[in-house]
């Protein structure tokens, strides 16, 4: 059997020689396929499957193919067994793993520590993750502590089913200011995984601390998130350019808080405002913080995108 396999192998190799020409490489002064510029150009036309294959050729090809894959491929994790295998593979070094963008979408978690271990992989740059409510504070802190290279984060938090699921966060540990900064995070989306239910525990200080740690955050989205007031109050939001509140409502109090943030200058504001909000206040807010003179259902002017949905019963804006 082995002899047969060896014969087949040598036949395949000699066939490859015939196709490609046997010794043309010998006459070259150096191997062009070890020159970084040339490899980069050759690999630029390759698909993911080929690049994975090229990783096995030699160390320098491995390095080039890996960095190219890291910049443009992603993976979806649906099974806990896949997550376990990923953790085993990246146990010693996660720098050489060819994927840095993960969508971790696990419906059930038998052993939640696997998720938390994944959240401490330092090279991940983009992450979408579904987190059960009881793991929410712990997960945010793990991310804040370990994932310094993260640029884009989408957290889908599943609401609690009962009060028993709430983890008590004691007053002294609730503030997470000691967990370090997220220097590269530019976009953050916080989503309620089940819009029919509100969160019982808001963990709004945990959320605020997390947002505060992202000093260069440009885009912040809340989807069906029912606890915004304190988050707005606690976070400076200086660097923010885009704020979207989808599914929830922005109250007059929220607008006043945002209006008092002197450094805030939004280029995009998408929100549904509560019916209690006075039109004058909204106009003033848009003028001061979004750079638009008037509010309407859909308004864009001077390169600034504003979409404010007013309650149906209030008088239509002029």
């Amino acid at each position: 059997m082995n002899v047969l396999a060896a014969l087949l192998r040598s036949w395949r190799l000699s066939k490859a020689d015939e196709d490609l020409g046997p010794c043309f490489m010998d006459s070259l002064p150096y191997n062009p396929l070890l020159n970084p510029l040339i490899i980069a150009k050759v690999f630029a036309y390759s698909g993911q499957k080929d690049l994975l294959n090229y990783r096995l050729v030699c160390k320098s090809w491995n390095g080039f193919a890996t960095s190219l894959l890291q910049s443009n491929s992603y993976a979806t994790v649906r099974q806990e067994s896949d997550l376990k295998r990923l953790l085993r593979l990246t146990k010693h070094s996660s720098n050489s793993f060819p994927i840095t963008r993960f969508y971790i979408k696990l419906a059930t978690l038998d052993n939640t520590s696997h998720l938390l271990k994944t959240l401490s992989m330092p090279t991940i740059v983009s992450l979408k993750v579904v987190i059960p409510s009881k793991l929410f504070p712990q997960s945010l802190r793990t991310i804040q502590q370990h994932m310094k290279s993260l640029r884009h984060l989408v957290i889908c938090r599943l609401p609690e089913l009962s009060f028993e699921a709430i983890v008590s966060v004691s007053a002294d540990t609730e503030r997470a200011t000691n967990y370090g900064f997220m220097p590269k995070l530019i976009s953050l989306t916080l989503r309620n995984g089940n819009p029919n239910r509100n969160f019982l525990a808001t963990y709004d200080l945990v959320v605020s601390d997390f947002i505060r740690s992202a000093r260069s955050l440009k885009s912040l989205d809340f989807c069906d998130w029912n606890c915004l007031a304190r988050v707005f109050r606690e976070c400076p939001l200086d660097s923010l350019k885009s704020l979207r509140v989808i599914g929830g409502k922005v109250s007059e109090g929220d607008l006043v808080v945002l209006m008092n943030k002197k450094e805030l200058k939004l280029e995009r504001f998408v929100a549904r405002v509560d019916r209690s909000v006075r039109k004058e206040l909204l106009d003033q807010f848009l003028k001061m913080r979004v750079g638009a003179a008037t509010s309407s259902n859909c308004k864009s002017g001077s390169g600034v995108k504003v979409r404010v949905t007013l309650p149906l019963s209030s008088s239509p804006p002029s």
Binding site: R12, A16, L20, N31, L33, V57
Partner: peptide
């Protein structure tokens, strides 16, 4: 191409 084919053809 397989890894072996590439290695042989390009002397890597």
């Amino acid at each position: 191409r397989t890894v072996d084919e590439i290695r042989t053809a390009f002397k890597l």
